[in-house]
Design a binder for these strands. Structure first.
Length: 297
DNA sequence: CGCGGTCAAGTGGCT
DNA sequence: AGCCACTTGACCGCG
């Protein structure tokens, strides 16, 4: 079991998602920003290796405006060696990597332009992992998208876009994650049946909306959609409810008893856990310690 | 130099 | 009808 946190390290004094306004776009500024972001990413990865945090989510913001038409520069070629060196570091230290395209990526939108933009964004994020030379156990996780008042039709549309419009390089890495209100684990399992995509499991989203599956069974069902030789073991997002806040809001800091209970409930099941918790690596350190004590990591 | 409004992009639930 | 949340704040103009 590998444990990690997403995108941002709060200990280090750098960000790998620096950006700027579209209005101030220039090729020079874009190149300069990418160079700084990749340098910071290297520092974050080194920090993670030093602390045994072997699962990490890369930010979507590594390359500003990467899938926007304003950016016509061949940054892939320009930063080829930098990406390759990052990938070599990732592989030699056996890190697991994911990316999570943001809420604007909606493959089943009725708006053709939205679908087109979404695919361009997936191509960008997949190309980052390709440039690093990572195998297909490095994943892109997205949600089912909208329901538009008719979920079966929306699922059908997702499936059609998947089969007719997505490049192989994206399909090889794409996974679907249950969300906190529209696409339940069951819906994601159906998308898996229709496309072959593995299902990323999110325990907090599952608590928000489900079809009665107990947590252990839910994890087992999601895990069964992963082909170990191609996809690696199950990836999951773990969080707990921020008390007294809106349903689905992530806790500020890990609630160790709840994480302990979750590990106990899933004993014997293999998975990599991404902690979606506000204070980032601070909670990841605690989670890793707990997992080691319980013989899981 | 610190604060706060705004930023490429979509959707749905809440008030 | 408008605001908020989402995997994640960061930028930039203004005082």
């Amino acid at each position: 079991m590998k444990i990690g946190y997403p995108c941002i390290n709060e200990t280090l004094d750098c960000s790998s998602s620096r950006t700027f306004r579209l209005a101030s776009y220039s090729e020079e500024r874009m190149i300069d920003t990418v160079a700084q972001n990749l340098a910071c990413l290297r520092r974050i990865l080194e920090y993670n290796v030093q602390h045994g945090l072997l699962f990490f989510r890369l930010t979507s913001g590594l390359v500003p405006f990467a899938s926007h038409e304003v950016n016509q520069y061949n940054w892939q070629e320009h930063f080829k060696m930098t990406f390759r060196r990052l990938g070599d570091y990732i592989k030699s230290n056996n890190l697991r990597i994911s990316m999570h395209p943001d809420q604007f990526v909606v493959l089943n939108s009725p708006n053709e332009q939205t679908v087109k933009n979404s695919i361009a964004e997936l191509v960008y994020q997949g190309s980052v992992l390709d440039l690093m030379g990572l195998d297909t156990s490095a994943k892109l996780q997205i949600h089912g998208g909208g329901a538009y008042g008719d979920k079966p039709t929306a699922i059908q549309r997702f499936t059609e876009v998947y089969h007719t419009m997505l490049p192989e390089a994206v399909k090889a890495r794409l996974c679907v994650e249950n969300d906190d209100r529209t696409y339940t684990l069951q819906d994601c399992l159906q998308l898996h049946e229709l496309t072959g995509m593995p299902v990323i499991f999110d325990n907090l989203h599952h608590e928000c909306v489900n079809n009665g599956e107990p947590m252990r069974e839910a994890v087992q069902m999601a895990a069964a959609t992963w082909q170990p030789e191609k996809d690696g073991i199950l990836m999951m997002d773990y969080s707990s409810q921020s008390l007294g806040e809106r349903k689905g809001k992530h806790t500020q800091s890990i609630q160790e008893q709840l994480f302990h209970d979750f590990l106990a409930e899933t004993e014997g099941l293999d998975m990599d856990i991404m902690l979606e918790i506000k204070d980032k690596e601070a909670s990841a350190h605690k989670a890793l310690k707990l997992a080691k004590q319980m013989g899981r990591a």
